[in-house]
């Protein structure tokens, strides 16, 4: 009986919109029932702007169907729009995905002509990439060896990704949707350099490794990886 009286849904108005706290100890059905009730009570009038809602679930985890249900209740028909749904818990699977996306994968081999090495996350290759070989990563690529083939960093579209190599003489560098290729004349290659996207020039540039310390400060922080994950 006590539970009945306890507020399952708490609303807080902020300048960004509305924050909804849903109690995480009751059943989902109860919460949804009460939520429906509340939303109908407090829906904005026709002439008022649509309100953004942040939903905080606490330690409750929602399935996809439940999220769908939630969206229907806080839906457009009630003149609300969901800005975000936040939960303190993640599924093991998602956590693993985060982990693989943020990990640096160390691989010790030579990527020879015709071979493709594809990793999720950052790639640390101890060995060469020979002409005709290709390395692909969703994150950054670090090569302790000679890069003579193709390297593609940030393949899922991360333009902040970069490629660093002890010896750089690639046939192509690709970062997200950018591609640059080696000049037609014979080039000697360079030592300890990196390739990254220069937003101003709108192309890939190759520069000394030292420039990374101010151009890509984020690599030193763990959060970058979580955010990207």
């Amino acid at each position: 009986m006590v539970q009945e009286k306890k507020q399952l849904i708490t609303m807080k108005g902020t300048k960004d919109g509305l924050t909804l706290f849903i109690d995480d100890t009751c059943s989902f059905e109860k919460a949804i029932f009460e939520l429906d009730h509340k939303m109908k009570e407090s829906r904005p009038k026709q002439d008022e702007p649509i309100v953004a809602v942040r939903v905080k679930l606490g330690t409750r985890y929602l399935h996809d169907e439940q999220i769908e249900q939630l969206k229907q209740v806080i839906g457009a028909k009630n003149r609300f729009t969901i800005h975000s749904i936040e939960s303190d818990v993640v599924r093991r699977e998602e956590a693993r995905m985060w982990q693989t996306n943020s990990e640096v994968k160390a691989i010790n081999r030579i990527v020879r002509s015709g071979q493709v090495l594809h990793v999720t996350g950052d790639l640390l290759l101890l060995g060469d990439v020979n002409p005709g070989g290709k390395v692909i990563a969703t994150g950054n690529i670090y090569i302790m060896g000679n890069l003579r083939g193709i390297a593609h960093a940030g393949i899922d579209g991360d333009r902040e990704a970069f490629i660093a190599a002890s010896f750089m003489n690639p046939s192509q560098l690709r970062i997200a949707d950018y591609i640059s290729r080696a000049p037609d004349y014979e080039s000697d290659g360079v030592y300890m350099e990196c390739g990254l996207v220069d937003e101003e020039k709108d192309k890939i540039i190759i520069d000394r490794l030292q420039v990374l310390s101010h151009r890509r400060k984020e690599i030193n922080r763990f959060e970058r990886r979580i955010q990207n994950g």
Partner: peptide, 12 residues
């Protein structure tokens, strides 16, 4: 040399 590299990859 390029083809040899490919072959070595396959042999490995």
């Amino acid at each position: 040399v390029r083809d040899a590299d490919r072959i070595i990859g396959l042999l490995e």
